[in-house]
């Protein structure tokens, strides 16, 4: 099908975009990467009166580091993250996850912030945001506000954003040296939506897990943070934490709220989530260990 008719305005600034959104409210949709919105328009699942194109808004381009955070402008494309954008494990994590997001031509257009605004339950970036306690920056008619990822997702395709607001940036805390990162996903074919996925970051100090952050994609209506699993790992010795990793996987699966799908019962989905959480944790523990500087050889 072809989209139903709509009007089109290319905004030149954040203020101009917000003014248009303020005027038109829920009748307007923001067009950034458009790689999900366009197909919903084709299906006529959404019929906006106006598209506000923000691709020409310079303020939304690029990334930087500010106050201990990697700041991604709303026009940072998935493809921009395929190589680490910052010398911190968070850059490595984004580069590790990026190839799981669709195909190269889609990644050239789609945006990180747009994925969070779209809030698909299977989206990898949404799980990353929840795992890392990202903050979503918005501009609206009454100014700027920042929303924690934990408060952002209200349901499938529902977020804390009001129709008058524009997502302008996403802030991801830098993880610091000694943090290991991991990501594991199961899907039916390359480029399919995640059947399930798990993202992990583990802080290691003096051979012990100082903290762990775990989130799962397509494990419920919104990304699920596995806090019980995180607690099960804290304080464990890295050298002998196989049991704790297994227990964390099982705990995460219990914390998930998966729905039955034609290709997977709830039991199967929980099983896969447990496996993926364990895999992501093993990756994270391995990458943390690889960062530990070995003492210089010599003196017997």
């Amino acid at each position: 099908m072809k989209p139903a008719p709509f009007a089109y305005q290319a905004a030149r600034s954040v203020d101009e975009a917000v003014a248009l959104l303020d005027e038109h409210g829920s009748a307007a949709k923001v067009l950034a990467g458009g790689q999900s919105l366009m197909l919903d328009l084709h299906y006529r699942r959404t019929r906006p009166a106006l598209l506000v194109d923000v691709n020409g808004v310079e303020e939304l381009v690029g990334h930087g580091v500010d106050d201990g955070h990697l700041v991604l402008g709303a026009l940072v494309r998935h493809a921009d993250l395929e190589r680490p954008v910052v010398d911190d494990p968070v850059g490595a994590l984004l580069a590790h996850v990026a190839p799981y997001v669709a195909h190269p031509p889609i990644r050239a257009r789609g945006t990180f912030a747009g994925s969070l605004a779209w809030a698909h339950p299977a989206a990898e970036w949404c799980a990353v945001a929840v795992a890392l306690d990202a903050e979503i920056g918005l501009h609206g008619p009454s100014g700027r506000r920042v929303v924690a990822a934990a408060e952002w997702f209200h349901g499938p395709h529902r977020t804390d954003r009001t129709a008058q607001e524009l997502v302008t940036e996403v802030r991801l805390p830098l993880l610091g040296a000694g943090t290991g990162i991991g990501f594991a996903e199961h899907r039916r074919t390359h480029g399919s939506f995640a059947f399930a996925a798990a993202v992990a970051a583990v802080g290691v100090a003096e051979g012990r897990v100082a903290w762990a952050r775990i989130a799962m994609a397509n494990a419920g209506p919104v990304p699920v943070r596995a806090t019980t699993a995180e607690r099960a790992l804290a304080g464990q010795s890295v050298a002998s934490c196989d049991g704790a990793v297994s227990e964390a996987g099982a705990a995460a699966a219990r914390e998930a709220d998966p729905r039955p799908e034609p290709h997977g019962s709830v039991e199967y989905r929980r099983h896969v989530l447990a496996v993926l959480v364990r895999r992501s944790l093993r990756q994270a523990l391995g990458s943390a260990a690889a960062q530990v500087t070995r003492p210089p050889a010599g003196r017997g």
Partner: peptide, 18 residues
């Protein structure tokens, strides 16, 4: 798939006005 400014993109997911 076509090239827009040298980049391969899906021309069904891009509006002409863009």
């Amino acid at each position: 798939t076509v090239l827009v400014d040298g980049q391969a993109v899906r021309s069904c997911l891009l509006l002409t006005v863009q």
